[in-house]
Simulated assay, not measured.
Amino acid sequence: MSFEVVDKAKLPYIYTADELISMFLTAYAREEARGSTAEPAFVKQKRLEIRRIVTSGKLLASTLRDMALRMPFLDKLHPFYRELIDVVYGAQVYKHAVAKVGNAHIAIKAIAKEAITAVRTAADKSQLYKARKMYQARVIDLLRDLAPELDKLREVVIYLRKLPSVDPTLFTIAVAGAPNVGKSSFVRCVSTAEPEVAEYPFTTKQIHLGHIILKGDKVQIVDTPGLLDRPLAERNAIERQAVLALRHLANVILFLVDPTPHSGYSLEMQKRLYDEIKTSFEAPTVAVVNKVDIATQEELEKARELFNPVAHISTLNCHGTREVVDYVLNKYYVPLALEKLREIRRRA
């Protein structure tokens, strides 16, 4: 089964309730009287009111429907994006917001239809004005009622626009580990990404993406939020984004270890996290010891005993980071690329 990815170009602009009310009233007022000057003034006024109702109602209904239809449909999205929206906003909350905004165009049409009937049957100007006020009041009440859902969709769109354009079909290296062990610095050293780097936990609030450009191809490298040593059910939304990246994107998991006290997390805690990742995800996990520029010999020796790392690096000056990427690509990417090439030749 093929899944869709989030196409940022297709994401709609989500109007606020106040913006929609302003749009509605402007469209209503923009219509001007037409017709023969010989036509009775009351009849002419009725025609104008009906035209105003039709024009403003159509504009509003089409705007609401278009916003809803251009939002991603969860059931069609790649599991990474689908579960990401569920983690951050809640799948049911999101679906409810999309459905309520989308179905509002039906209510708008019904209100307009009733208003047109009231205008046509109005016996005098007072009834005509009453029909107008009733129409406008009902539409405005409906839009104000939609405000929470519109605000929620606006949040989702802003979040998705900021999210990197992840391609689940590309070979992906996911960089994992406890908070503040140097994941963002590593990604910055080896790829096109420029994630924020700072000396405090959870600098990475969401997934960041970089690319390693190869001859005729590219590899994704994902900087994930830091993970803590606790069960998945107890993890917060930031940590669960990392879990999703590991589950749905990673071809290889690069686990960074900080042997020093600077991250605030002991080697024992990091080892428990490392063991959990190795047993919880299908992708192979490779341990790399970071911060060799400041670690003591005793700290490095203890890290070697616990993790049996493939390399020792320093992301402060990018020492050894390229060699780690070369190791990962040669061991895991090249065999897959060769297999794909052989498959293409077999089909040809």
Rank of each mutant, 00 (worst) to 15 (best):
R47F: 15
V222L: 11
I111S: 01
R345G: 01
L267D: 04
G90M: 12
K133V: 13
T260M: 12
I116T: 12
V190G: 03
H105K: 02
T26V: 14
A91K: 06
A176W: 04
H312W: 09
L214M: 07
F80D: 01
R70C: 08
I344T: 07
E282K: 11
A337N: 00
K130M: 12
N236D: 12
H96W: 08
H105F: 08
L256T: 05
L48K: 11
E298K: 09
K331A: 02
L25C: 04
G320C: 13
A112Q: 05
T260Q: 07
A107H: 09
A283G: 02
Y274I: 15
A9F: 09
P72F: 12
P148C: 07
A137S: 12
R65V: 12
E31L: 13
D326G: 08
L69E: 07
V6E: 03
A61D: 00
K291G: 04
V288K: 01
H96N: 08
T55D: 07
R322V: 14
D326L: 13
K8R: 07
H208E: 13
L170E: 06
I207W: 01
Y327G: 09
V310L: 06
V119H: 00
L142C: 11
V219P: 00
H96G: 05
R240I: 14
A137C: 06
N180M: 06
I116L: 09
D275L: 15
T260P: 04
V325S: 04
N180F: 06
L306N: 00
P231F: 10
P231A: 13
Y332D: 05
E323F: 05
S266Y: 07
V197Y: 03
Y135W: 05
A287T: 09
V156R: 00
L228H: 05
V175S: 02
F202V: 12
F73H: 05
F186S: 10
R230E: 04
H262D: 10
K302Y: 07
A33H: 07
Y200Q: 06
V88R: 02
A287W: 02
D66I: 15
E339R: 11
T117E: 02
G210N: 01
N251I: 14
D223Y: 14
R47C: 14
L256P: 00
I253S: 00
D326I: 14
Y94M: 14
A68K: 05
V156H: 00
Q45M: 15
T279V: 09
A193V: 15
K95L: 13
S185F: 13
E19V: 15
